[in-house]
């Protein structure tokens, strides 16, 4: 039931986005909008947005999952609560402040934007990885050890599968947040759908503004549904 319905919803949301774009391109309210919004430009901005989100989310996954695993190993275990508390404090820092700070230290462009988004996406994944591993029943790992499994086998065959759905939940949160925060990248020259919102604002054309706002919302909803599906499948 679920597996049938969520792809359908994703397709539905995607077609709403396509229809909106087609409508704005085919019926621009005046020549300014017509020049600003073409298929090429919308597609380009969409790809840029994907690039920002994809690069930062990928970086976040490959850094925070191993870090989370390392912090739950016996040798570093005592650090985990402190790191978790620090991560929780860092998560209260607003996204605009993170983006602004990276610009303050690295100048404008897509690189500081990606680094800011990466740091911001790292936090939910790291905290979920830590919690996911901490929640694995020690009796189960004990049993696995008792059966003669090596430490790395316990990790990959027992602990990781059990923490997988929690990690996926963190990735889901991170990706949806990043899609929204990536809009701010436009302020610092990182491009993406934020360009459309800012342009629509500067020339005060509601059509451009609404399109620029709607596409990231649809992207976020689609990503949420997509990762929800994966998260359910990862449930142990």
């Amino acid at each position: 039931m679920v597996s049938l319905r969520s792809p359908l919803k994703i397709v539905l949301l995607g077609s709403i986005g396509v229809l909106m774009t087609v409508w704005v391109v085919e019926n621009p309210q005046d020549s300014v909008v017509a020049r600003l919004v073409t298929y090429d430009k919308v597609w380009g901005l969409l790809l840029q947005h994907f690039y920002l989100v994809g690069a930062s989310a990928l970086l976040a996954v490959v850094t925070s999952v191993p870090l989370g695993i390392a912090l739950t190993r016996p040798r570093l275990k005592s650090w985990a609560p402190r790191v978790l508390a620090l991560v929780n404090v860092c998560q209260t820092v607003p996204s605009l402040a993170v983006v602004a700070l990276s610009v303050g230290f690295m100048g404008v462009g897509s690189r500081p934007a990606i680094i800011a988004l990466w740091i911001y996406a790292l936090l939910p994944i790291l905290s979920n990885t830590l919690v996911g591993f901490q929640e694995v029943d020690p009796a189960i790992t004990e049993a696995a050890h008792g059966m003669g499994m090596k430490a790395w086998r316990v990790l990959f065959r027992v602990e990781l599968p059990m923490a997988a759905s929690m990690i996926m939940a963190g990735i889901r949160t991170a990706v949806t947040i990043t899609i929204g925060s990536a809009i701010l990248a436009a302020f610092v020259g990182g491009g993406g759908m934020g360009n459309l919102i800012i342009a629509g604002n500067n020339i005060s054309r509601a059509q451009v503004l609404v399109l620029g706002a709607a596409l990231p919302v649809l992207m976020a909803l689609m990503a949420d549904l997509f990762f929800e599906g994966i998260e359910k499948r990862a449930k142990y």
Partner: peptide
């Protein structure tokens, strides 16, 4: 950001972060 004054950006960002925390 628009005046490319790093000091302004950093002061704003740090203060907002501190207030949030």
């Amino acid at each position: 950001i628009s005046r490319s004054s790093d000091q302004m950006v950093i002061v704003g960002a740090v203060l907002i972060s501190v207030i949030s925390i």
